[in-house]
Structures are given as C-alpha cells and as structure tokens.
Design a protein around this nucleic acid. Structure first.
Lengths: 179, 179
DNA sequence: GCCAATTCCGACCAAAAGAATAGGATATGA
DNA sequence: TCATATCCTATTCTTTTGGTCGGAATTGGC
C-alpha cells in the first residue's frame, strides 16, 4: 500500500531554505484548511492527495498537534482537523511549530529564552541578522492559512451555514490584510 | 601555527538559518570594510582577529572575488580588499555570492533561470514562499556594508582626505536609507 | 468480541550537506 | 632565495535531513 519506490527529495536551493518539514507541513495544513468543518481527515487520505509519505507526515503532525494547531481523533474514522478556522491560523505559528524559532543566525532568534552568542558586544553585524529575522517574521505573521486556501477551493462544510456565518462575524485577528 | 584543536560549529538554530558561509563571509567583509583604503589585508590577519579558520576563509573568499566584491593581490604583503567603498556594497550581493540565490523554497527562487516545481498550477501555497523570499531580499537589499561598520570603527585610510571626499561625493546607490 | 482503520511512539538508517583540514602549486616583495 | 601570500583541489569527519519500520494503544462498525 505504501509507495515503496521513494525518491528522497533534498532541496537546498541556496540561502535560507526551509526544509521539507516546513514544506510538507504547510501543504498538510492547507489540505486540512480545505476540509475544515467536515470532520477529521486521515493522514492516509492526505498523503495520497499530496503524494507525500504518510509515515513522514505522521511525524510532522505531532509538532502541529503539540502547538495546538490541529487536534486528533483516534481509532477508526479518526484523523486530524484544524482547531480553529483557517483565517485564525497565522502562518508564523505554523512554521515555528514545524521548524523551530525563526533565527537566520544564532545571535538573532525569535525565541526569547535563547542565549545570545559570545561575540555580542564587539559584534557589528548582529544588527543585520535581526533585521532579516524581523522581515521574515513580519511576512509570516501577516498571512493566515485562509490566504493560502481560496475559499472556492474549500469543501462544503457539514454545518456550512452556521460555521460560515460565525467565521464572517469574527474578523481575522493578528493578520494584516494583503495589499 | 594553525589552531589544531578545532570546535566545529554546526548551527541550525531553527528555521531559515544561514550557514557559516554566510556568517563568516559577512564578518570577513566587515573586516575588509574597516580596513578599506589601507591596502590589501591578508586572510591570516583577519582569521586571527575574527578567530576563524584561515583555510576555510580561503574558500569563502573565492566566491566573493568571483562576484567582484573583493580583489586580491598575490604574493608577499598581498591580501584582499574591497573593490568598492562599503556604502556601495549591498548586503544582498554579499549573501547571494556566499550562499546562492535567496530561495526559501524550491518554487520561490531569486534566480530567474531556475525551474519552477512540477506542482505549480495546482499549488496554492507557492504564493507564501514568494512573499517570504521578497521580504528577505528586500531587507538584504536595503542594507549596505557601511550600515554594518560604523565609520568610527574604520581604520584611517591611507589617502584619507581624497577617498573620503570622493565617497561623499557619490551618493549610496541601490540602497534605501534606514528608517 | 473481533476486525480494520486509525493515531501514537520510538528506534533505526542512508544519503546529503556542512564545516572544515591537508597539501601542494604559484606568485611576489624584501 | 626565502617567507608570505593567494590559489586550487581533494579528503575527512559530523550533523542533519528525510525518511522507513515495527509495534503499541484506540476506536467505530459488524
């Protein structure tokens, strides 16, 4: 059942590349966004649609669950679903859950309880890494899952009327509108 | 002469981290900026001041030279120096030379002649990676070497009066001013 | 109560990239 | 001619990446 001929995809295409964790994780979240409101979706199902190794997704989804972005239902007909509507899930949260704190350099981490490097003080370049970090964080925190999944692409919610109205009533939080 | 007890520093501190190539390379450039106008500086000298392996710097500086950011003088009392004053060297150039094109994901590269991934078309998430890339590029291209090395930290130029005046006469190009 | 579909979890593994080291050839000023 | 440089290529070791594997524990449906 599992696709045994696996082409390992290593993609370090230059500077500041995210790993497959970030890539697959985001795609997984996008699939869950499409299905939001339709009950839990199994990883087998999603792995098939996105053509990704199910066993690997299993690992990724743990981080997403621990970050309270998805919730799981065990047993038959179980699976995963978003804990919140897509417009309330900021991409910064997703990427940080998957890949760790945004830190282009050891001396410029998102995470407050992260030691600064020994060179700080006589280091004139730190300032650059901080600016880069802020640029990335800013971009990430200005997008939600809803921005990635056009509502046209979403499956009809089971309780469509209810949910749709409720979602519209609550404006997107923490996210600035796209230009 | 070379410090034989080497502590290899692997630093993947989370998402979007640059490698030591980027880190060391920028520090190297900062040192050259300090010395700008004082003739070539040897790598031995710089490696000592920054406490970095000289042989490794040798490799990095090749990329910088090929990108026409530094020029070399061979033989005794040779070394490297900037090809342009610090205010004319945009950090985007430096990082791209050291680490390759800015591409947070395979489908979102800086480099125009870079194939897009097979999924484009039915891929709704690509747009996010492009925005991240633009955020990074933007930050990088809005800083010059001069922003990293305060003029107070620079060594007095040999032909100080001349150079200083010449530099002031030509406004910084390609770089927007810091807020 | 059994079975199939699930999540859950830890161990394991091969290949790639990262971070150098090693060693020599070539150039050049003193 | 010698010490100091850049130049260049090959090798080495380690860590991370990108998974696989196998087996729990859970749960709905028959």
């Amino acid at each position: 059942m599992e696709p045994t001929l696996s082409t390992r995809t290593y993609h370090s295409t230059g500077a500041v590349s995210f790993s497959t964790k970030g890539e697959y994780g985001v795609r997984l979240m996008a699939q869950l966004a499409r299905r939001h409101g339709t009950g839990p979706a199994s990883l087998t199902e999603i792995a098939e649609q996105e053509d990704l190794p199910r066993a690997y997704l299993e690992q990724l989804v743990i981080s997403l669950r621990d970050a309270d972005l998805v919730q799981s239902t065990r047993g038959a007909h179980g699976g995963y679903e978003l804990t919140r509507p897509p417009e309330k899930i900021v991409m910064g949260e997703v990427l940080r859950a998957l890949e760790g704190p945004i830190a282009p350099m050891i001396c410029a981490s998102d995470d407050p309880n992260h030691l600064t490097c020994a060179r700080s003080g006589h280091c004139t370049v730190n300032f650059m890494w901080v600016r880069i970090r802020d640029a990335i964080s800013g971009a990430l925190d200005s997008m939600t899952l809803a921005d990635l999944v056009p509502s046209a692409a979403r499956l009809p919610s089971v309780t469509a009327g209810f949910i749709a109205l409720a979602d519209l009533a609550t404006p997107p939080q923490g996210a600035t509108k796209l230009p």
